[in-house]
Design a protein around this nucleic acid. Structure first.
Lengths: 249, 249
DNA sequence: TCTTTTTATGCACGTTTGTGCCTCCTTTTA
DNA sequence: TAAAAGGAGGCACAAACGTGCATAAAAAGA
């Protein structure tokens, strides 16, 4: 691999992931850490990245993660997001609601990607600020601060007048028997409406959410077109997998 | 997690929550308290936070991104915002649109302030995340990324069904003859509607915006109930001041 | 194509940085 | 005023860094 080629790759990775660790990069690109260090130094001198001890950061605003508890690692959510990027097609009309996992996905959408994105989540809208070719349509409502999404009658009503190709659902609880559920009624009704107007539905779940349930049911699991998880546990796979759901791990 | 990344996160948290406890941070970011102490010490030395026993406090203007850390205009905008805080009364219904000056105002609203805030600007909504007693209503629309506000027919229509006590207008151009103007038609029509449904109107302007004009006129200057500026130039004062406008500098 | 020159890479080795732990001291709180 | 919580400084260790040098890989020239 040529030096130039490798540095481009580094830039691409850092743009997607917003930060990199030098030692990781060394493994991923199969070169010595010395070379990576030299690359990072050069890119930093050109002002393309911000070099810091043990890695580098992307220039520009950092990820504004609104989750109070940082427990679930961002890396995992990033990985989930990466799997979804390939499913997105140009010129799709994509509906995305809230959740940090969805946010991490949005952060990884290439800056030149062309699409329409509809969302009721202010952080998602903010994250699309620099995507010149993405038309962002925000759905209003009363801000539910815990999940940072707009909810309420107006939100549901607005959704009545639209359809979209893909709904990327933020999932808090999923259970093979009970289905997908959320803790509040207003979130459930908005999500139900979103489900009903979408051709395909995609859900990303971190392992801590598998086999949990809450009070308000959104829909059964088989409504999902795609289910993306981190875990390759074959038990889970067979539990959730079905003819209808495309299971990606 | 990289050190710089962690420190940026600390800044973000302290900006949102106005104060932090070192031991909490240690848990939230999964590092030892020693490391947090060192981080806080460094940030304090850089003048970015105010270190106190057992934690730290926010120091004036919010600054998360290292690329925007040293921005002087932040200071000025913060001072303007401070003047406005006293005008806000509890339980008001306040309409706020976009602009960085407005955002700086919102950052200074006390965390326990009680009110309803209606906005078409995602950053404003985000900034109110930790204000438990503020009901935030977001108005949807097509996101105009340059000013980060939602615009369009739906936005205007939604405003038809409401009234509010105070409209805090983001001002880009103001001129005693021409009035208040903006560069785009859609922004102008939304602002005009906002003017028409509000009992009082407040505008903050930094000196660089005084005596400038743009293509689409929103309203004459005397529509303003309050005009807040940084400059004590008496010429300007007499130009803009009138029986109708309360001039604060 | 072959040789020469330039550039890029990996390794060795001493240095620096970041972090957690420990001890002793200071501040806060009951 | 005593106990508890927080803070400062030192120590240790691992990971990351920079530098010089030998060698490999490109690029340039013949």
């Amino acid at each position: 691999m040529l030096k130039r080629e490798r540095q481009d790759k580094i830039l691409q990775i850092i743009n997607e992931e917003h930060k990199i660790i030098a030692s990781d990069l060394s493994k991923r690109l199969s070169v010595s850490e010395d070379t990576i260090r030299r690359d990072l130094k050069e890119l930093d001198n050109q002002g393309l990245i911000k070099r810091v001890h043990s890695g580098a950061l992307r220039i520009g605003p950092p990820i504004v993660d609104f989750s109070v508890r940082e427990n679930i690692s961002n890396e995992i959510k990033m990985k989930l997001g990466k799997k979804v990027i390939d499913i997105l097609k140009e010129d799709m009309v994509i509906l995305i609601d809230g959740g940090t996992t969805n946010l991490h996905l949005v952060y990884q959408i290439p800056l030149d990607f062309k699409a329409s994105i509809i969302t009721n989540s202010p952080p998602i809208a903010m994250a699309l600020r620099n995507h010149k070719n993405i038309e962002v349509i925000m759905i209003g409502g009363t801000l539910f601060k815990q999940s940072m999404v707009n909810l309420g009658i107006d939100t549901v009503e607005y959704l009545n007048n639209m359809r979209c190709d893909l709904y990327i659902m933020g999932i808090y609880n999923i259970n093979p028997q009970i289905g997908i559920s959320v803790p509040t009624l207003s979130e459930a009704s908005v999500k139900r409406k979103m489900v009903s107007i979408s051709s395909e539905i995609l859900g990303m779940v971190t392992s801590d959410k598998l086999d949990t349930a809450s009070n308000h049911i959104v829909c059964p699991v088989n409504k999902l077109t795609y289910l993306i998880t981190e875990n390759i546990n074959s038990d889970l796979k067979s539990t959730y997998n079905s003819e209808e759901v495309i299971f990606i791990d």
